[in-house]
Structure formats: C-alpha cells, structure tokens
Amino acid sequence: MIESRHDSVIVRHLGGGLIPLVQIFALYILFFGQHGPGGGFVGGVMMGTSFILGILVFGPTDRSTVVAKRVAEADGVGLIIFAAVGGLCLIGGGQFLNYAELEIPGLAAPSRRYLGILLTQIGVAVDIAVTAVSIVFSLSVVSGNGDSHV
C-alpha cells in the first residue's frame, strides 16, 4: 500500500528531523524507567513508532525501511532476552525471574535486582518495538525491492 515516499517536502524534512529525536527520547524513557515514569513497554512502543514513521514518510525503497524490515524479522528476540534472564536466575540457584540469584560476583542483591529489571526491560522493549513494526508490515505489504502489493 505504501508505494513511494511522501509527496510533501515539509513532511519529509520534519520526519527526518523528528525520527532521531523520538528514538533518543525512547531510549531515555527505556533506561530512565527505573527512576521516573516510563519503562520497557513505552520505550519499546516509541522506538517502534519511530521506525513506523520512517516507513510511512520515506517509502519502501528507503534505507530506513530496509532497516525496519530487518528489525521486523527479529520477532521473539525480546522474549528470549526476558526468558533468558529468568533462566540465568535458575542457573544461579534461585527461582525463575528471581533476580537476586543472578550469578554476578561483586554485586549485592539489590544491585542484582536493579540489573535484572534493566535487562528484562530491554527485553520487553525489543519485543514490543519489533511487534509494532511487524504488524505495520503485515497491514501494508511493503516489499523490499520497491514494488508493493495490496
């Protein structure tokens, strides 16, 4: 459905300036989620939204869409990160997702929990961002070589 880049030069220039800002803000939301509002879910959605904006503005042939298509193939990676952190806790001798049992020498239990929360938030963010981009590609078939269907 998305056949070419957007006609309006205003939209293209604004999009080009806005996308990096949205991505930086998404990273801030993700990594500051333990100290302020936000977290993995919102950070992931914002990151996915920035990719979607690139797809909508620059069309199927642009480099950003190719990158987004690569990103959309990583479905499930975030889930694996989340579950792997839980599995590492199992290896450390604790319960599943009990971050106090993460086997990291030199860290007290609260710091381990802090690290566990951060890692699982990254997992959630990756999962959400990839899913959002993937749904957009499912809704509007954009093929990589420039010709589009629907």
Binding site: Q34, H35, P37, G39, L97, Y99, P110, S111, I117, T120
Partner: peptide
C-alpha cells in the same frame, strides 16, 4: 529491595515479573 525509585517499575518487572513475561 531493588534500588528502583519508581515503584511501578519495581512491581511490574520484579515482584510481578512472571505477569509481565506472560504479557510479553
């Protein structure tokens, strides 16, 4: 427990981490 000032994040990602895993 978690050195996380945002209680919502601490509950979501640590105390109720299994819930969040299933949501993911």
């Amino acid at each position: 427990d978690t050195q996380t000032p945002n209680v919502v994040t601490a509950v979501l990602m640590d105390y109720r981490a299994f819930d969040t895993l299933m949501e993911t």
